[in-house]
Design a protein around this nucleic acid. Sequence first.
DNA 1: AGGGCTATAAGTGTCAACAATTCATCCCGG
DNA 2: CCGGGATGAATTGTTGACACTTATAGCCCT
Lengths: 229, 229
Amino acid sequence: MAPKATLGDDLFERLLELIYSCELPPGAIVNESALAARFAVSRGPVREAVRRLQGIQLVSREPFMRARVITLEPRAVRELFEMREALEGYACRLAAQRMDAAEIERLAAGLEHNRSRALGGDEHQSPAESFDFHERIVRASGNARIVDTLCGDLYHLLRLYRRWSGAAGERRSIAYTEHRQILLAIRGRDGELAESLMRSHIARAAENVLRNLPASAEDAGSDAGVSAA
Amino acid sequence: MAPKATLGDDLFERLLELIYSCELPPGAIVNESALAARFAVSRGPVREAVRRLQGIQLVSREPFMRARVITLEPRAVRELFEMREALEGYACRLAAQRMDAAEIERLAAGLEHNRSRALGGDEHQSPAESFDFHERIVRASGNARIVDTLCGDLYHLLRLYRRWSGAAGERRSIAYTEHRQILLAIRGRDGELAESLMRSHIARAAENVLRNLPASAEDAGSDAGVSAA
DNA sequence: AGGGCTATAAGTGTCAACAATTCATCCCGG
DNA sequence: CCGGGATGAATTGTTGACACTTATAGCCCT
């Protein structure tokens, strides 16, 4: 139905999936030739896809060196969440100023819908739906550049960190409360408050993720990493 | 002295310079073959460099379409400055918390040095040095991800907009005052104030740039662009 | 036995040709 | 005179081979 995409674009998605599924675990070396053979394409498209991964900093890059999937260093996690605080906070402020009433009500409906479903059975669906709330607000900011940066780059990383550290779930009911406060601030058109709440919300999530980290040497500086798999 | 860089990396810098010098003006089509012939390399490295330009959104990208240098649309300018407000504001807050005393004094010295030099002759050197102040603060934030996003991506765009719109210079003395206020907030370790001041500073700069725009159809939506050169 | 050097192997960077797609032109019909 | 469709040219996407760099393994020397 959509044969317009190029091979490189497809490969990008597939490599992303490979990383998500931990078939390419953190720290794994990304071999262009091997991947080319695996997907039955030439090295050109693979190279292009890998370069895009490197562009959003999912794999390391040094000129002639072998590329590796990034690892879960506390410093990187901290930096990611700080950037989210800055960007999503501001996006939330913009959304509070710019969303129209109908949009706000759709957001509220989605939030309540997810809550009622969460009170039921589906436990593991939750993180994706938490994303949904954040993503809707970001997209409502009316700033395509911020949207692209968050949804196109940072959220990939965030999903990875969530999956790798296995940290998610127990914060769900708390998250609902915080989400609801944010929604109320948006509904009241209080951009200042909405930004502040979103920042706190993300900061708490960061603490939660950082707590469940393997080696919690936050400010160690030099990295003594994952050598033995 | 540094022959370790690959051709693709060199080409990236050179294409950047080509865009800065308006040899590739806004809206110009970026022809891989032509550039390859011009720089006496194959299309591979050129392709890679162009893809990197596309990655930071300096040239447009659609699968089989010809790539074009982006144009100076008011919407994009607004979005760029909004993102700067979010990111640099937060970076400024972090810097206020994390810079050590010696670093702050170096920043102050640089600011005064530029001022005294600005009071002298060199008029056109000023914008680069204004960047210097901002860039120092950003780098002092201690967040490599934010630093890369701002200094690696957004600042390229910012320089372009400045050059294309020709807007710079008359705000210099005002900028000094605002820079000085920011410095004082940092020295007082008031992250909240520093962020607020930085945001206002950038917002004012945005207004200044948007004022000097050719067609000021801010929320026009559809673009009627530069067809005749 | 351990450290440093060399040779081999593996992997990345680059190139030139081929295939697929889009853009420009021209012709035709209305 | 204008719009639509086919044709040819220009441009991008893809491929496989070659050149260069880095990593691995083995060897010699101390």
